[in-house]
Amino acid sequence: MKLGFLVDLNLCMGCKGCEIACKVENEVPLSSWRLRVKYIDIGSFPDTSRSFTPLRCNHCENAPCERICPVSALHYLDNGIVNIDSERCIGCAGCMMACPYGAIYMDPESNTADKCTYCAHRIEGGLMPSCVVACPTEANIFGDVEDETSQISRYIMEHQGNVQVRKPEKHTNPLHYYVGGGNNTLNPLAHERIEGYGLFNNITTLDHPGNPNRSILDRFLEPIFGHPNDNLDNKSLLDMNSKGDK
């Protein structure tokens, strides 16, 4: 069994329902994401269009993150999922450097690397990943790519010639496919990021991986004494970040 994902970009309407469902299901902290939908505008007014690309871990068959992880915190499950054991992770960020898709983040609460696991905990219980359930247009298709009768396999066969993966030149063999994708949606260097023209210009991201309020000394003291900010929730973290911005 090899579990894979396919997103039909012709069906995706950019509602971000999958993003929210993922955040809620996996309690993904602020400033981090496991799945996000990127918006790209193409063309000049009035000849314009907007495309949406859901981006998540590609669960590569030849995963660079798994290879570089020094302690096997990143490992393959029998069903092909690239899973992560946060109890073993040492926080070296090697996986973040290795992932060609920028899909791994340093969780500011656990201070370990984390990423999309295709909702491995739900799959174990016979459920679909939360993003699949939330998608109103069924643009997210999930299943066993080795089973010829599965919906994802049939979808891939029906759309032969129009199925792509991100960065095939990296030889990572992603188990995450796109139908209806193009250079603009799948190649990060094909489009511009013009300062001041973003749809949501005030989105803030951390200027370094992990918790900005955790010093180097905290890395040593925290496991013994705990952290004064242990009770931080999303709101207080946001308040602290915005104070820092000012």
């Binding site: 981090s32 994401w33 996000r36 990127k38 918006y39 790209i40 505008d41 193409i42 063309g43 000049s44 007014f45 314009t48 907007r50 960020a93 973040m96 450097m97 920028g102 791994i104 983040y105 603009n184 094909a190 489009h191 511009e192 990021r193 013009i194 001041g196 023209y197 973003g198 749809l199 949501f200 989105i203 991201t205 951390l206 200027d207 370094h208 991986p209």
Partner: peptide
Amino acid sequence: DHVSTIEATKAIVTMDVAHTGIIWGW
């Protein structure tokens, strides 16, 4: 006003919250 000045010969990212920052620094 500034929107009309975009010469969109290339696609433009209008929303992207990629994980940013230097991972391995000094």
